[in-house]
Design a protein around this nucleic acid. Structure first.
Lengths: 216, 216
DNA sequence: ATTTGAAAGTGGTCTGGCCACTCATATTGT
DNA sequence: ACAATATGAGTGGCCAGACCACTTTCAAAT
């Protein structure tokens, strides 16, 4: 009945064991030799299960130290899948649009978060904008973080990396004029305005990129 | 330099080999013993790589026959990951929100596509809604396709699979009342209305899922 | 008290073997 | 001649045991 695929059973057993013994992310799980003994399987078979879990990012192994349950809040979902998703020559446009989608969604989320509005964090952004070292990517990433959706943040980060990085440069003076309205709108929780300003900024960047040269 | 993690290299090499030799889904790939010989690694190490790929649903092994490149529609990945990860409520919420984000973005895109509006495809949707076999997931998937962003479609598909599948059931009669407004709004390119109706529908589904039992 | 180094424990890899299964082929029985 | 059967080669599934490289620990030497 349960013919073959022993390593799949092992995956399950390991999962159950982790639950029962209340192993928390970061904790060590028993050594390969112990597990093999406990589950009555050969070490190589056990390793097949472990390597699979590792590729999924569920566990983490360090030679000489042991095997650890990784923090699945940082699920590797995206990394693993991105190799499949992004492998074919997906049009640049899709990546750009999708990234923008995540960014705008983050802005919406931020505007609707009342607790966030009371923190008055936007002033500090404005100050940093005045200062010298302020990268576009940093600004947007912080927005993504503020949105509170970690999965969206991860996807965004990948798309950001993938799409070259027209984002990773210092902001120019012209650009600051485009960014200030975004901060103003965010400060006052004006969702529509913030999105509009953000789109303007994004399109401005995209246009400039097209002019400068399309480094793939 | 590239210390340890040999099996990861193997994963890569296998993937490259598959590309170069133009192996198509369903085709057989060389036997474990052949591959081990070719890549100059032990068979057990090679197997660790293969099992990982299998758990990802990229290959399929049949004892006595061989190893085959799989139709990567069957991501076991999703089941495994979800059993490990979805216990975390924050993750659950993130997945749900992100999925909804992609869906709404697709609706926006559809509403803004004038060429699409002239095709009068929505009547056929309504007819199918009257018919017997109409699954929620099919409906949403077609929306994603219509949006034209293939990357977003792929991400959506994964999130959809990942989030269990409260979506993969027949629509009830009650539900049709919630869906019709969506179709009406889409037909008339009423973006705001369509989004609002879609959100109502989605929240209805989510509520019902919470009531029925939160199968982890 | 500090440094050193040996031992124990860990994951990483390989070898070689046996088993269970599939399939094509050869053999056998009719 | 045909059909049923047996055989053998090839495959994945699994295991035991052996090294290696690395980390940690702790006792011994300084």
């Amino acid at each position: 009945m349960n013919q073959s695929k022993r390593y799949l059973d092992i995956v399950k057993e390991i999962r159950d064991m982790i639950r029962q013994e209340k192993i928390r992310p970061g904790d060590r799980i028993p050594s390969e030799r112990e597990l093999a003994e406990k589950l009555q399987v050969g070490r190589s078979t056990l390793r097949e299960a472990l390597r699979s879990l590792e590729l999924l990012g569920l566990i983490e192994t360090r030679r000489g130290e042991g095997t650890f349950l990784s923090d699945h809040r940082n699920h590797k979902l995206v990394e693993v899948l991105s190799t499949f998703i992004l492998q074919d020559n997906q049009s640049r446009k899709d990546v750009w649009e999708t990234r923008l989608m995540h960014e705008i969604s983050a802005i919406q989320s931020i505007c609707q978060n009342k607790a966030l509005a009371e923190l008055r964090i936007w002033d500090s952004f404005k100050k940093r904008l005045e200062g010298e070292s302020f990268q576009r990517a940093d600004f947007v990433r912080e927005l993504m973080v503020l949105s509170g959706n970690r999965l969206s943040l991860k996807i965004w980060f990948l798309l950001h990396q993938y799409s070259g990085s027209p984002y990773s440069h210092e902001v120019s003076e012209d650009e600051k004029d485009l960014m200030l309205p975004i901060l103003d709108a965010l400060e006052n929780q004006q969702e529509e305005k913030a999105i509009h300003a953000f789109k303007s900024w994004s399109e401005w960047i995209e246009k400039r990129r097209m002019l400068n040269g399309d480094n793939s």
